[in-house]
Write a protein that binds this DNA or RNA. Structure first.
Length: 213
DNA sequence: CGTTCGATGCACT
DNA sequence: GTGCATCGAACGT
């Protein structure tokens, strides 16, 4: 059962944190894939220099200005689709980037898609949806899913009561502008989480906390 | 281990 | 024409 739109129509940082432990489900051509969200990043409106809305409304970022609970998907580096979830009431151009999943349904489909893309074969389960570009590939999410209503029955999120572990916040990965804002959150100790972990090498300031940054 | 770098498409200036 | 919210192969230490 999809999460209600009210779930998304809240503060982006709250939604990002609450998405951890929720399950992303994609049904396409009879194949279902699903995974638990273990890592996400908040992009918070026109005043956030890393947010696509920092330049004001454009053709690309238009979905962010619309109703919450919709997908914002775009092609990045000409290679990878990145999947975002639009948050906050319409008119507030905010979204949460999903960066990693713990796969739970359709592992064989995921493995086939990853292998078809780059010939990546024999991947361990925890690498199938590790990283924002990898998870869209494994889940079969493409530009066709841009603006999809996540309150429908094709691409949606649901609460399966997965026990959520400790949450940590850190700076966002792969950006330059706005790199000082600790708006990446993840479940500590989950092998599917991309990049560096709290307390991991580099010690780049991840804070273990259930609270907001 | 670590860092660099090419692939590849398109939105935006 | 410039610059990416990436990935992983290839190289250096």
């Amino acid at each position: 059962m999809p999460l209600p739109r009210s779930f998304y129509a809240r503060s982006t940082l709250d939604v990002a944190r609450d998405l951890l432990g929720k399950v992303l489900v994609h049904r396409v051509r009879g194949a279902t894939t699903a995974g638990v969200i273990v890592e996400a990043e908040a992009y918070v409106g026109e005043t956030d220099p890393a947010c696509h809305a920092a330049t004001g409304p454009t053709g690309r970022n238009r979905p962010m200005y619309g109703e919450p609970g919709h997908a914002y998907v775009y092609l990045n580096y000409g290679v990878h689709f990145l999947f975002n979830i639009v948050t906050e009431p319409a008119g507030h151009p905010c979204a949460v980037l999903i960066r990693a999943l713990q796969p739970i349904d359709g592992l064989a489909t995921m493995r086939r898609r990853r292998a078809a893309a780059r010939g990546a074969r024999g991947l361990p389960d925890h690498e199938l949806c590790r990283g924002p570009g990898n998870l869209t590939r494994a889940m079969g999410i493409t530009i066709r899913d841009n603006r999809a209503d996540l309150c429908g029955d094709r691409l949606f999120l649901e609460d399966r009561g997965v026990p959520s572990g400790d949450v940590a916040w850190s700076p966002r990965i792969g950006i330059t502008a706005g790199a000082d804002r600790p708006w990446r959150c993840f479940l500590v100790g989950t092998p599917s989480v991309s990049g560096w972990h709290a307390g991991g090498r580099g010690g780049r300031g991840a804070q273990a906390s259930r609270n907001l940054p």
